[in-house]
Nucleic acid binder design. Structure first.
Length: 482
RNA sequence: GGCGAAGUGGCCGAGUGGUUAGGCAGAGGUCUGCAAAACCUUCUACAGCGGUUCGAGUCCGCUCUUCGCCUCCA
């Protein structure tokens, strides 16, 4: 069985094999840190998180680099507009570095809650100015870049194949730069900036051979990707909206210098929409994750994201989130039941589920199908547990091993124990366990005596605090609602 | 205008030629003191029109509609 990945460059699914056996080099465009993360970030980074996890499960050592863009890029391409991070710094009455640091921490905070694994390397653009300057110098030397008044531009005409990723190869046909041309130093409207001379009062600036200024938008990814992963990498991921111009520019910068393919597999994830319209900061319809987490378990959000394919748009609505919540709860309930119910003699064959799960994940990381396998498994487990012979020790272990691998390690939507954590926490869990056992005993007695007023009171009051009681054939069980 | 993606049942969301995706919601039943959960059964589909084929949601063409990119954006 082999892994197939949809390559945006070829627009087909291709069999994946890493350039160097056993090792995958992977770069994913990180956030620009000038605001809190929103649901769109969640979709993107949860998707790539599962991709990394699955590659690792498949036996690869994945070197995962995800940058932090902490140089403010302009809000506009017309050689004007404002640096976003500076703008935010002005609004918050502080300096750009604090803005960048603050929102970087905020970003990781949210990603941690979503169980997104940290990248192996998270390079910041501001920490790699020398590398970016060196890349520009190489481009100048090879005739792909030119300097005008302290600004350096990449000459698009000098690189054959510019736009091959987005399919936007006919530069004349999309003269979006016409309005730019009048006031810019560019020789060609399609050319893009590699280095910009800083205006008076621009807070983030560095010395370079051309001017005191700051790097262009697309440069950091090429420079840092090549620095940490080499001139040709296996996978480069990012949002679809970055295909053009960002990724096409990255390709141009890198390949113009190395003459080698920059990226073997381009992967692009789709947008989150609200009522069919893209969610975006500039559109002011974005759903802030910290706000969302107040109402909803982050893992429900993770589950919600994974219920659609990464290349599909995901439409957000409260009812959709609620459906995910109920669905995930069902899976967790099965997991709990499996652990708590007494053993029997029933034999369960996990292999078909395992097989289908792997098949789904190997097919361009088809998480919705993988999840559907878990639902079908859940149904089968419940049915088995309902039978008098229940499940044998060995079968239960098989299932738990699979759930652990598929549900926890790969998709990371099921946790070993929702309440487990640090040691102190575990101690308190034990105590709650003891208290709950007493309460359930009292309730069982009340029910035995047909004192349903009391038994219902116990159940209802516990429910008010978020603890749900369910009467099963083997007695009552309890769980904390998420 | 150019480039690209997509239109699936009440909602979300898979499916690149031939047997049920899956989830949520709805209906009926089993179980239960009641409830919840679980299990069983069940109703709504493939935008439209042509074409290819023994057979199409799935391929081809046209039409309509939606979305993304062409300004920063996951």
């Amino acid at each position: 069985m082999s892994l197939f990945i949809y390559n945006s460059l070829s627009r087909t699914k291709e069999k994946f094999e890493s350039l160097h056996p056993g090792i995958v080099s992977m770069y994913v465009c990180g956030p620009t840190v000038y605001g809190h993360a929103h649901l769109g970030h969640a979709k993107s980074y949860v998707s790539f998180d599962v991709i990394v996890r699955w590659l690792r499960q498949s036996g690869y050592r994945v070197k995962y680099v995800q940058n932090i863009t902490d140089v403010g890029h302009l809000t506009d391409d017309a050689d004007e507009g404002e640096d976003k991070i500076m703008k935010q710094a002005r609004l918050e009455k502080t300096d750009p570095m604090e803005i960048a640091q603050f929102y970087t921490r905020s970003f990781y905070e949210d990603m941690d809650k979503l169980e997104v694994l940290r990248p192996n390397i998270a390079p910041a653009a501001t920490a790699h100015i020398p590398e970016q300057i060196a890349l520009i110098a190489r481009l100048m030397k090879t005739g792909h870049a030119y300097e005008v008044n302290g600004n350096v531009y990449f000459s698009v005409k000098s690189f054959e194949g510019y736009g091959k990723l987005s399919g936007r190869t006919d530069q004349e046909a999309h003269q979006s730069g016409i309005r730019v041309g009048i006031r810019s130093d560019k020789k060609d409207p399609s050319d893009f900036a590699l280095w910009k001379k800083a205006d008076e009062g621009h807070l983030m600036q560095w010395n370079s051979p051309w001017s005191t200024g700051y790097p262009g938008w697309h440069l950091e990814c090429s420079a840092m990707s090549m620095k940490y992963l080499g001139e040709t990498i296996d996978i480069h991921g990012g949002g679809m909206e970055n295909k053009f111009p960002h990724h096409d520019c990255e390709i141009a910068q890198a390949e113009a210098v190395t003459g080698k393919p920059y990226v073997r597999f381009w992967m692009h994830n789709n947008m989150v929409t609200i009522n069919g319209i893209k969610m975006g900061k500039s559109l002011k319809n974005s759903i802030n994750l910290k706000e969302l987490f107040k109402e909803t378990d982050p893992l429900v959000i993770r589950f919600f994201v994974l219920q659609s394919h990464y290349r599909s748009q995901l439409d957000y609505s409260e009812t959709a989130i609620k459906a995910s919540k109920t669905g995930l709860e069902k899976l967790r309930e099965t997991q709990r039941r499996l652990k708590e119910q007494p053993l029997g003699t029933g034999v369960f064959d996990i292999a078909p589920f395992q097989h289908r799960f792997t098949e789904a994940m190997d097919d361009d990381f088809n998480t919705p199908v993988a999840i559907s396998v878990l639902f079908e498994l859940s149904k089968a487990i419940n049915a088995a547990l309902d039978r008098t012979e229940a499940l044998s020790e060995a079968s239960r272990q098989d299932i738990e091993a699979f759930l652990d691998k598929a549900g926890r390690e790969t998709l990371c939507i099921l946790k070993q124990d929702d309440l487990s954590g640090d040691r102190d926490n575990r101690e308190s869990v034990k105590k709650i366990d003891a208290v709950m056992t007493i309460l359930l005993e009292l309730r069982a007695e009340a029910r035995k005596n047909k004192d349903f007023v009391l038994s219902d009171k116990i159940r209802d009051r516990l429910l008010e605090t978020g603890i749900e009681i369910k009467d099963t054939r083997e007695g009552a069980s309890w769980s904390v609602q998420s």
